[in-house]
Design a protein around this nucleic acid. Structure first.
Length: 592
RNA sequence: CGGGGCGUAGCGUAGUGGCUAGCGCGCCUGCUUUGGGAGCAGGAGACCGGGAGUUCGAAUCUCCCCGCCCCGACCA
């Protein structure tokens, strides 16, 4: 089919929209691909919808190729299904809720685990029916507190989600592997570069989980990567315990701990500064660093029933607790910092000068005390002395104090140690384009999905859950494929193969362009013909680059010499091609 | 939910109490123009986010509300 710019429902904008920040948002709006309707809610215009459908088709192709079967659930769902797993309440404000005319509760599905599980439960009851993988491509709704970055994080978005159902753990592993492979093919075809990182199963429960992240500065996820190939979302980064090495003193050789007056040291920095200034505190081998201090944070953990328990976390003073890593580590509990009222319950805590002496299950406070993996036997610390204005120096772990257990929730930094090889981790940002989980039996258990095995025994099915953000992928591709002039679509997702500019108003130029468009169309190439009259060539050139069609053909001045101009949008390389060779040459370019 | 910024035509914006709210892009008509966002002339298009108040007079000042963007919190 030939699309004509003269008739196409598209309007390109010269200026960036004021409300757009990230490149994909700016360019998709400027190019007339999408328009915002409400916060986090967008309409797809013809060009954008074509790209969207191309992406969707690739996703569907690869799912089908893997042998998975497509189904389609409603987006509008009754409350009941989400009641059984507790998510009607658990999902909180992020759930779009509504009522029908009889005041019955409904919701717009944010995800469909329950529906899939219940559907399989309704149909199947024998191990002979398994394994099974079904998927859907569905519009999802989440009433995000803050939608952002245009298409990248909307309140309405399209996701491909699939679910595997197996009897055995080995079966689940195989289903997981098949998805992993299918995702690799999918993202390769979409022209996305990506890294597969280990992730936290988090709120989804389950064990093994990996994310596909498309590296991008505007990505919301932070991950680390090591030259050994190891990669992980920061939430899932494991910091190895500090290793003993010869440069470390034996505990016996370390000075005995001593309590010192340290007035006016409200911050770690001021404490370190004074420790280095005062001759009685200075250490002889090197100066004190903030990483020599041990800071003890107090939190209140809350479980689903609302029960609270205190927790103290000790981490090196140069680090902060990463709240996302903390949430992941203590899931399903949630955490909040100690408030005044909490401190009042523990008179042994001297706020601002809390040290290990009063922490731990066996201590006077009885508060569970967990420490960073860097805090190991033989390490010496400056920390609170549990009296206002006093700190204790040379407090040695293993000799002077211990903790109840390790907790790995300190912020991760560039250069931190890789748990796999001991190398240095590098941090980057990425857009989450896919996530695969081995859910295990949590949902099946909750919803009673059991089948009879070959011995006639009822066994709970084990499940996997796998998602690809289809609409997000469009934006992710735009993020990875653009330059200062506009979009640069990979061919398979591009809205057309050729953007054919008729640069001039002579009869010859127009008929030649029309003729070429028809010939390319006849051999299966998708052509956008810029046949707008009264539009200057400059406008057409600029639009051709903004829209990002991979091959740009210009029919114009060159005709006098019997040539047309063919330009590769990505590389910018242009060449003149004899008109007589044009059909075959361009076809070759577009199909290889 | 906390912090910051912003709401003026389809888009981008100017306008710190005073005449009929200005400009650019886009749009319509005519003429000219056609290889990098053309020129001239003429036009259409704005309840200046909403409400209340102060004032002889409010886009402009005050209060309340609504909405949007960014950062944080939150987030399959």
């Amino acid at each position: 089919m030939i699309s004509r710019m003269s008739a196409m429902f598209v309007r390109t904008l010269r200026d960036d929209p004021a409300d757009a920040e990230v490149p994909s948002h700016k360019l998709l709006v400027r190019g007339g691909y999408v328009r915002r309707i409400a916060p986090g809610i967008f309409s797809w215009l013809p060009l954008g919808y074509t790209v969207y459908r191309n992406v969707e088709k690739i996703v569907r192709d690869e799912m089908d190729k893997a042998g998975f079967q497509e189904v389609h659930f409603p987006a509008l769902l009754p409350r009941e299904a989400y009641e059984e797993t507790g998510r009607w309440t658990e999902y909180g404000d992020n759930l779009f809720r509504l009522k029908d005319r009889r005041e019955n509760d409904y919701l717009l599905g944010p995800t469909h685990e329950e529906m899939f599980t219940l559907m399989v439960k309704g149909e199947y009851s024998s191990y002979r029916d398994l394994p099974l993988v079904i998927y859907q491509i569905q519009t999802k709704y989440r009433d995000e507190a803050r939608p952002r970055a245009g298409i990248l994080r909307g309140r309405e978005f399209v996701m491909k989600d699939s679910y595997s159902f197996d009897v055995t753990d080995e079966g689940l592993e195989l289903s997981y592997k098949r998805h992993r492979d299918a995702y690799i093919s999918t993202f390769d075809r979409l022209g996305l570069s990506y890294v597969i990182v280990s992730a936290m199963a988090g709120a989804m429960g389950g064990s093994l989980s990996e994310e596909f992240l498309a590296p991008s500065e505007v990505g919301e996820d932070t991950y680390v990567r090591c030259s050994c190939g190891h990669a992980a979302n920061v939430e899932a980064v494991v910091i190895p315990a500090a290793k003993w090495d010869d440069s470390m003193d034996l505990p016996a050789e370390l000075p005995a701990s001593h309590v010192e007056d340290t007035p006016n040291t409200p911050t770690i920095d001021s404490l370190v500064a004074i420790s280095n200034e005062r001759a009685d505190l200075r250490r002889d081998d090197r100066s004190w660093e903030s990483s020599d201090t041990l800071k003890n944070l107090l939190l209140v953990l809350t479980d689903a029933e609302g029960n609270e328990q205190p927790l103290a976390i000790g981490i090196p003073g140069d680090r902060e607790v990463d709240m996302r890593r903390l949430e992941a580590a203590i899931y399903p509990l949630t955490a909040r910092p100690f408030e005044e009222a909490d401190f009042k319950k523990f008179p042994s805590l001297a706020k601002g000068y809390i040290g290990p002496g009063v922490l731990g299950k066996e201590s006077v406070s009885g508060i569970e005390f967990r420490t960073d993996p860097r805090i190991v036997s033989g390490t010496r610390w400056i920390t609170g002395a549990n009296q206002h204005g006093k700190h204790v120096f040379d407090l040695v772990y293993g000799r002077d104090f211990t903790s109840d257990s390790v907790i790995d929730v300190a912020e991760v930094r560039d250069g931190d140690i890789c748990s796999e090889c001991g190398g240095e981790l590098r941090m980057s940002r990425g857009i989450e384009i896919g996530h695969i989980f081995q859910l295990g039996r949590k949902y099946a258990e909750a919803l009673g999905l059991r089948v009879l095995d070959e011995h006639g025994e009822l066994v709970t099915v084990t499940m996997g859950s796998y998602g690809i953000g289809v609409s997000r992928a469009v934006a992710a591709i735009a993020e990875q494929h653009h330059d200062e002039r506009g979009l640069v679509w990979p061919r398979e997702v591009a809205p057309a193969d050729i953007y054919l500019v008729a640069a001039g108003k002579s009869e010859e130029i127009i008929t030649t362009a029309e003729d070429l468009a028809e010939q390319w169309d006849a051999v299966g190439l998708r052509v956008i013909l810029d046949d707008r009259v009264g539009v200057s060539p400059g406008v057409k050139f600029n639009d051709s680059e903004l829209l990002g069609i991979p091959t740009i053909v210009v029919v114009g001045k060159g005709l006098e010499r019997g040539v047309i101009e063919v330009k590769d949008r990505g590389t910018g390389v242009r060449e003149d091609i004899e008109l007589v060779d044009a059909v075959a040459r361009v076809r070759h370019i577009c199909t290889t």
